[in-house]
Write a protein that binds this DNA or RNA. Structure first.
Lengths: 228, 228
DNA sequence: AAGAGCAAGATTGTTGAACAATTCTACAAG
DNA sequence: CTTGTAGAATTGTTCAACAATCTTGCTCTT
């Protein structure tokens, strides 16, 4: 009984672990990079940013390392850190990885937990609800959640983290400042179709559809890249 | 022509980029962790290690962060960094990820580049050569190379990096101080069988065999874990 | 005018010290 | 045996200084 109490409390330990200063700084910078305020190629000066945010160089450099690990920044020795400029090759590399991870996870649909499967369906419903109410930001959120939920079918926390880094990098490449509606509307249709196939127990066809979706999506991101 | 020269030189740029002090320190510590000199659970004191290696606390902490990203060390706030103690859940998580990545990569064998396919076969031959000459360290190296080569079939540098982190973590869990021979001899047989199936164009069967291998290997690592 | 070489200025890399915040240790009290 | 507490030890964070490296702008040569 006492063990039960202890283990229950232990589960909440992660919540207590306060975020370090560097993590908070990293969160601020991550948001700035992902929403385009810090455009790809921009140099992040230690003095300028450190002064603006009121943190020391050491702490700032730690924040830089966190974002470098997420591949949002690139570090060049003795030159500084820059917002990553995604290339066509980067996009291809990212989608090759996503194909492996998500198609592999989805192909194990039948063995996945009920919670994980439910999350996939709920993500699509969230997106559909957003479309009905003309809330296209929600459609975008639902799309990300859909793919996250697919990855989570595999049940590996490490795989989830690796995939999340890929999603963040896609957001960097696909600066969704405009035209988000037409893209996400189209993507939503793919997601709906995949869930329909899953509901009909046509897992293999769902995987094929997802694979085809990646072909389209990669092309979309690449063209959006050269357009800028 | 000039472009050709430039691109050729650019390829060697990575070699010239001198490693930062923290990276060199991280490399030393990584080797110590992977060969067991720094056993799981050991605390890495900043003062002790920094003094021994002759680097400042700031630089050492940066090295710690690099290894924490690789999941070889764990960081507990205000308590310090420790060599990770892999749990049964960790092993399960790692193998769930490896199943997705490697089975997915192998299932795309037919579309892979010739170089990538050749690397898979060469890794097995390297292991067989090691077995013939009773060089069991080479058999172990060949086994790692075999799985790396499978991952590289997918052609994604990001996926390669993520998988390499998984391999390092397996090495941490499976401290191969002893009994490496009986394990690697057995694993070598699996690798040989997989390549044979691939040579017969039975890709799907090769994937199934790999999947079955993961079931066995995970169990091996888990039992080896509880034994210690 | 174009390019090579060079010196000054700016930025990053690394260290050491200092102080705050947290944890660990040891011992006393109940 | 557990609880509480004071002090020691360790980590978290910042700052200042100097070395190493890169960038910039200038001069000189052709």
């Amino acid at each position: 009984m006492a063990d039960n109490v202890a283990s229950t409390l232990a589960r909440g330990k992660a919540d207590l672990e306060r975020a370090t200063t560097a993590q908070k700084v990293a969160d601020v910078l991550r948001a700035r990079v992902l929403n385009g305020e810090l455009a790809p190629g921009v140099k992040l000066s230690e003095e300028a940013i450190g002064g603006a945010l009121g943190v020391s160089r050491n702490t700032l450099r730690e924040a830089f390392r966190l974002l470098t690990h997420d591949r949002l920044l690139v570090h060049e020795h003795s030159r500084g850190v820059f917002v990553r400029v995604p290339t066509k090759d980067d996009v291809h590399d990212i989608y090759a990885a996503r194909r492996i991870i998500e198609c592999g996870a989805l192909s194990r649909w039948d063995e996945a937990s009920d919670e994980a499967k439910q999350a996939v369906k709920e993500a699509v419903e969230f997106g559909q609800q957003g479309a009905r109410t003309d809330n296209w930001a929600d459609v975008g959120t639902g799309n990300i959640r859909f793919h996250q939920a697919i990855t989570r079918l595999a049940g590996s926390e490490r795989l989830n983290e690796d995939a999340d880094r890929l999603y963040a990098e896609v957001r960097l490449a696909f600066q969704m400042t405009r035209e988000t509606r037409q893209f996400y509307e189209r993507y939503l249709q793919w997601n709906v179709k995949i869930v329909e196939l899953l509901n009909k127990n046509k897992t293999q066809e769902a995987v094929s559809t997802l694979d085809e979706y990646f072909r389209i999506a990669e092309q979309d991101v690449v063209t959006h890249l050269s357009a800028s």
